[in-house]
Amino acid sequence: MITLENVSKTYPGGVKAVDNVSLTVPSGEIFGFLGPNGAGKTTAIKMITGILRPDSGEIKVNGIDIAKNPLEAKKQIGFVPDDPNMFLRLKGIEYLNFMADIYDVPLDEQKGRISDLCRRFEMADVLRDPIQSYSHGMRQKIIIMGVLLHNPSVWILDEPMTGLDPRSSFLLKNMMREHVESGRTLFFSTHVLDVAEKICDRIAIINRGRILFTGTIDEMREHLSKNASLESMFLELTDDE
């Protein structure tokens, strides 16, 4: 479970990227965070994961306050950033080992999980190559594998579908579903209405740092049909992926 209470963040330049946001992401449901580019999704996620500190407000992950007990809170989370260009100088297997080491994955589980993830993501062939030699989609896959390795109870993904081929995004959807079915938490952002409609159980819509709506998919459809301007904002976005 993730809770945000009256969270705000203004960047040094003066942009109020997140404006008094309160949000509860329950476990057991796929929770989508929908908003156009520049809405404040990444900023909010960065605060939940401990990358940025909010100017005001409180954030708890599984009841643990990220400001007061950062290490414990961070251990709950598996985070997939929007930019998969990281750890490029490491080989795939080295990155996976690194993640297992810092998230304290027991060695006997580590082996089985790596081989299982490799099989599912079809990455066994390239595990001994540097991540630098991977394509964009492969980089995304290896980052996701590293995150799933420690079986996080809260899984957070920033724009995960961008750049994945249909097969991989289908696979990812299944894994997201599996994750929540075991009673854990999943929070992901997207700027595409279509993606949100197809995957999510529950949705929050954000624009210019403010939450405009929270509810189930059906409630959202109803809400959008009443707010023509809001709907058109997203309809423009459905095609660009």
């Binding site: 080992n97 304290d104 060695l107 082996k111 390239v126 595990l127 190559d129």
Partner: peptide, 25 residues
Amino acid sequence: SGSRRHKIREGEFGRLVKRRTALTA
């Protein structure tokens, strides 16, 4: 950068997987 595409056989995972402390990692 070079990419060799060596398939890793099931038995090999044991050898490739290591365990270190966070500091060493």
